[in-house]
């Protein structure tokens, strides 16, 4: 198999005496949606924050296209093409859609000190990118707070895609959404995969995972039981794994992983 875009090997993360992650490994491949499942508190958010450079690893290694990397800030991860849409949304409700879209990467023109944000360009790009995914932002100057939850997720995702992300990490993008908005986001995840990005899709909803996932990894109390590909595992089995039920041992054999 081709080299994964991103590989996380035996990742551990401790917060003082709390062991949030106790050795988690996954591989992210281009053009695939890798679902990361687990109950609340399993360590999913902590795990992806180590990928995104928000947390430093306590132990473990990261490989980007086979090369070892070490991020110390979100900026470094972003520059390496790893974009994250956080659960607590990296969007600022009081700021306009455009200002949010370009936050941290504002295009400027002119010579210092007369160097200004190119607002016309920003507004145009924002409207176009939103239109591409079927959201009609009539006025890109309107605050993000006026958008629905699903629309906000889509703004965050399209921002990442626009800025050339190779790996897109989505932390529970569907957990707060209704049915229609969920399908909007899932459809968009599918579009992103078809463009060749590697997607990490975090959810605790097995049906959402089965709808778009190519690979599934279950986290349980900071540990993983290995990864299953699409077709190798059923929704029921995933559900049981998440619950850490009694079928755990049988299933781990089936998955070929180690407990």
């Amino acid at each position: 198999m081709a080299t994964p875009i991103l590989e996380m090997r035996d990742i551990e993360k401790h917060f003082g005496s709390v062991v949030a992650l106790a050795g988690v490994s996954i591989e992210i491949h281009a053009g695939e949606v890798h679902c990361l499942l687990g109950d609340n508190g399993a360590g999913k958010s902590t795990f992806i924050k180590t990928m995104a450079g928000v947390h430093r690893l306590t132990k473990g290694q990261m490989f980007l296209n086979g090369q070892p990397v070490h991020f110390t800030s979100p900026r470094q991860a972003l520059d390496a093409g790893i974009a994250t849409v956080y659960q607590d949304l990296a969007m600022i409700p009081l700021m306009s859609v455009t200002r949010n879209f370009f936050m941290g990467r504002e295009p400027v023109k002119g010579i210092w000190p007369l160097r200004f944000m190119d607002m016309g360009f920003c507004d145009r790009v924002t409207r176009e990118e939103m239109q591409r995914i079927g959201i009609d932002v009539r006025d890109p100057g309107q605050a993000v707070g006026t958008l629905s939850g699903g629309e906000r997720q889509c703004v965050a995702i399209s921002r990442a895609v626009y800025f050339g992300a190779k790996v897109l990490i989505l932390d529970e993008p569907t957990s707060a959404l209704g049915v229609r908005q969920t399908s909007m986001v899932l459809k968009y995840i599918d579009m992103v995969r078809k463009r060749g990005l590697g997607v990490v899709f975090i959810t605790h909803n097995v049906r959402h995972a089965m709808a778009v996932g190519d690979r599934f990894t279950v986290l349980n109390r900071g540990r993983t039981l290995g990864t299953a590909a699409r077709g190798e595992i059923s929704a029921d089995e995933l559900q049981n794994l998440m619950a850490g039920g009694k079928e755990l041992a049988d299933l781990s054999a089936e998955l070929g992983g180690t407990v």
Partner: peptide, 28 residues
């Protein structure tokens, strides 16, 4: 007024005040 409304630094000011975590995570 120009600084706040029309420059990159101005956008960073809004972002830092709106939600410092979100801003930092976006590279501000």
């Amino acid at each position: 007024a120009i600084l706040l409304a029309r420059t990159r630094y101005g956008n960073w000011i809004f972002a830092a005040g709106g939600d410092p975590n979100a801003a930092r995570n976006s590279g501000v």
